[in-house]
Design a protein around this nucleic acid. Structure first.
Lengths: 317, 317
DNA sequence: TCATTGGTTGGGCATTTGCTCACACTCTGG
DNA sequence: CCAGAGTGTGAGCAAATGCCCAACCAATGA
């Protein structure tokens, strides 16, 4: 109807409006087009853009009883404070896609709290997907801190810049980890650790009220290796030392005990202590991660878990 | 794949799973059908059921700048603590449908708070729609209290049993208002008011940390009249006394001052005091309500508003 | 036992939607 | 001023979806 060419309307505005009419209003794309005074194709493109830009968030209210049962079982078996199990998507699909909305919901519960919290994040696909799903919360009083940087030894940044996207979305003060994931020498690492801002970040991380991390496997698919943070020989060195998994660069064996090798001493992230009192929530799913996840749970490196149905079953088997 | 006839799976479970695969997983209905081992038609029915049962919740992240501007304007003009404006749906559609998701989001922010709150609710279409949209929050420590009952003089209950649905959904202790909306005589009303449980509910209502209400107009479309709570002659009596609107049965004039007539003295609800410090959030939209809404804002009967774009514009005009 | 009824299932069809392709328009550099 | 690259637009079509209808099944009552 109103087809005045306001100077203020951004493309996102249009997309959001189209998405609103379509998803919330339940109009057909023809009707949306008529309402906005554009062609049907354009309406369809706007709706698609709204979805692609992550403006549209879909959540399910109902907990499927099978998943609920698994949550209870996981909580008991591993002494967790929190377990969320989502239905599995058919094999082949990106698993992080499935856990992300549930993880976002967990995070939002913390974000909604009125007292200021320190919220710590790792990196990785799962966390990145969670960041996309979080709905923006206005003026929350929290601070967010990164437990690991995303800078590879060659200086390039991996895609999963969780903390920046989170900070951008939530408008919160944020403290990135300045130490590179891995340095060349122990001396260099020590140099970084001596920096004031680094110490401040470590201090914040140690006092985080809640921590969200992914869990990385240490087989050939290891994210640390795949994303170019460690070399193949370093990976093999770690595997020989019994590494089965990794949480923000802290590498542990099948019992969930951190291991210590030449390579681990070069890794510059905050090491989450085992058996923490404050919530440490892992977001992880996928059969290839089972070993790493079971070890992390056994070693009490995490006390909360967001995963999917098939992974939960495998963990309990 | 797994077509075992588990005894535990309810129809809702199936619907939820289908909805999950479809909406979150982004599968086509054919794929959902294959995954669940049912026919495509059944899959389509399950997905539709998931939607119809309100299992699927869609929210938009982006605030359309036009709406944001209106929020700011409303806040300034009427001294509000909170204003939320959603894009308008084309004329003719149920307006409460549009405001509901936004209102639910506001409510969820309170529900997520860890300290126990007293949350008070009115009734009506808008609140009822909000209740449908709220996503279940596990073991929150709050109590919810009703400000007005939904029992008509003939003993029948109106559909909008907000507090019961809310309590059911959120598993919270709830305190329904026992006094009928309107009694036959002042003596009868006094009798009700003397009851211990009624006094307890009034006490809770007075101490509510946050209050959600609808706003009713007092023209021929008045909800109080339409839903059979007051007779035509009572409506006319009120109109003669200058009534333009109503909040949980508290009837006010164009300046937002509560009015006092034979009829109002029979109404048995909690009267929200003007200029309350704690948030009192109205959820209302629609051109027919403009007069009532403007009056309520003028009289500071509410200090928060969730409405839609066209209503907001009309209010500011 | 059998007919009736209420509800569920799958087939078929009209509508809606996603996508590709060719074209137009604009912006930039020669 | 023109050529070329890149972005955006509308037409058309195949796939996906929603919906109606006839058939089927289970339960009830005569």
């Amino acid at each position: 109807m109103t087809t005045m060419t306001d100077p203020e309307i951004t493309p996102q505005d249009e997309a959001a409006r189209a998405g609103w009419l379509y998803y919330v209003g339940g109009l057909t794309q023809d009707q949306v087009a008529a309402e906005l005074g554009v062609s049907r194709q354009r309406a369809q493109r706007l709706v698609a853009k709204a979805m692609a830009d992550g403006l549209v968030h879909v959540r399910l209210e109902h907990k499927i009883s099978a998943c609920l049962d698994l949550e209870v079982d996981l909580t008991r078996r591993f002494g967790l404070k929190l377990a969320r199990v989502v239905p599995a998507l058919p094999a082949g699909l990106e698993t992080s896609h499935a856990t992300a909305p549930a993880a976002a919901q967990v995070l939002e519960r913390y974000l909604a709290q009125p007292e200021p919290l320190i919220i710590a994040f790792g990196t990785g696909r799962s966390l990145s997907a969670m960041a996309s799903e979080v709905i923006r919360t206005p003026h929350a009083p929290h601070r967010i801190v990164s437990l690991i940087s995303n800078i590879a030894p060659d200086g390039s940044a991996s895609f999963y810049d969780v903390i920046m996207r989170m900070a951008d979305k939530l408008q919160l003060p944020h403290y990135p980890m300045l130490v590179p994931v891995i340095t060349d020498t122990i001396a260099e690492r020590a140099l970084f650790n001596a920096l004031r801002p680094v110490q401040a970040v470590m201090e914040l991380a140690a006092n985080a009220d809640v921590t969200f991390v992914g869990i990385g496997q240490m087989n050939g698919e290891a994210p640390l290796y795949k994303d170019g943070f460690i070399t193949r020989s370093q990976l093999e060195d770690l595997q020989r030392a019994g590494a089965v998994g990794e949480i923000v660069g802290g590498i542990f064996d099948a019992e969930g005990r951190y291991i210590d090798t030449e390579t681990t001493r070069l890794i510059g992230s905050f090491r989450i202590p085992a058996g923490r009192e404050k919530p440490v929530i892992a977001i992880a799913a996928g059969l290839s991660k089972i070993g790493a996840m079971r070890a992390a749970l056994k070693g009490q490196l995490v006390n909360g878990l967001v995963t999917d149905e098939s992974t939960a079953r495998a963990l309990l088997a």
